[in-house]
Amino acid sequence: MRLTAGASILLASSAHAFTNPAFFPRTATFASTSSYTSALILKMGVDQDELKKQVGYKAVDDYVKSGMVVGLGTGSTAYYAVERVGEKLKSGELKDVLAIPTSIRTKEQAESLGIPLVTLDTHSKLDVAIDGADGVDPELNLTKGGGGALFREKIVEICADKFIVIVDESKLCDGLGPGFPIPVEILPFCHEHTMRVIGELPSCKGCKPVLRMGSSTNNQVDGDEIAISDNGNYLVDLHFEDPIKDPAKMAQELKNVVGVVEHGLFCGMSTAVIIAGADGISVKEAK
């Protein structure tokens, strides 16, 4: 998507401002400057959906080739990557691409675009997976699962040779936890017990486990019934006031809890993160 000349000038001038040390207080953290950037983007009239579309399209253009098996993510940013795959297949620019969706709604979108679908049962090795994230820390660890598809996302994306993460700058943070709750998918059986055990884990100290209510596709209370994942399970959102000190340790402790199906910490999985912000699109690759 092309920006108007006026918007481009505004973006260029703001990019200069963000490189000027005097623009922010000395105490400003990366997360706070990122939030300010996102607010400025919206104030300038650069729609956040435009940013999501830019990174979604770039991920497909740069990483998806004919003959590949591709993992299709879930969420408002991943939506545009799926859209781009469909466009390029229809135009003939891509051929013989097979895709594995990470949720029912992504499956439905892909089918509507004529994207050929397979499953991990027949194709356990993927060339690339593309998906968004709810939080990205400096080590490229992720929080995912705000849309409730964390289990399917992880099982697909861990099978990919490359996992490309697409976000706008508002998703960047100094540490996971405070900016977005950590989702955990648990079995319905004795779910209150499982929630208590999770809350007592040393790595989860200080968290507040909240059972997701209403729709499973967001972590807002928008109904009176318990939210049900695509797999028929419950979702618990762990709310933190302070950054998680050791995401990898917390990931391990959560998986060891009987009753936990999967969690929304994606540690050490990212190949690269494509970021859309006020100064354009940038790419950060894993070390």
Results as ranks from 00 to 15, higher is better:
residue 3 L to N: 10
residue 19 T to A: 14
residue 22 A to E: 11
residue 28 A to S: 15
residue 37 T to A: 05
residue 39 A to S: 15
residue 40 L to K: 12
residue 43 K to M: 11
residue 43 K to F: 08
residue 45 G to K: 00
residue 56 G to W: 05
residue 57 Y to S: 08
residue 67 G to N: 08
residue 69 V to F: 01
residue 72 L to I: 04
residue 73 G to M: 10
residue 73 G to N: 13
residue 81 A to H: 09
residue 81 A to E: 12
residue 82 V to L: 11
residue 85 V to A: 01
residue 90 K to R: 15
residue 93 E to R: 10
residue 99 A to G: 02
residue 103 S to C: 07
residue 104 I to T: 08
residue 108 E to C: 11
residue 111 E to I: 14
residue 112 S to N: 03
residue 118 V to N: 09
residue 124 S to V: 00
residue 126 L to Q: 07
residue 134 D to M: 03
residue 139 E to V: 01
residue 139 E to N: 15
residue 140 L to Y: 02
residue 142 L to Y: 00
residue 142 L to G: 01
residue 143 T to N: 11
residue 145 G to I: 02
residue 147 G to I: 06
residue 161 D to R: 14
residue 162 K to V: 06
residue 162 K to L: 12
residue 170 S to Y: 04
residue 170 S to K: 10
residue 176 L to S: 07
residue 178 P to Q: 08
residue 178 P to I: 08
residue 179 G to L: 11
residue 180 F to W: 02
residue 188 P to W: 03
residue 193 H to T: 15
residue 195 M to D: 13
residue 199 G to C: 12
residue 205 K to N: 11
residue 208 K to P: 07
residue 211 L to C: 09
residue 212 R to C: 02
residue 215 S to A: 13
residue 219 N to Y: 11
residue 222 D to P: 06
residue 226 I to T: 07
residue 228 I to K: 14
residue 234 Y to I: 05
residue 244 I to R: 00
residue 245 K to L: 15
residue 249 K to R: 15
residue 255 K to L: 05
residue 256 N to A: 15
residue 260 V to D: 02
residue 272 A to V: 12
residue 284 K to S: 04
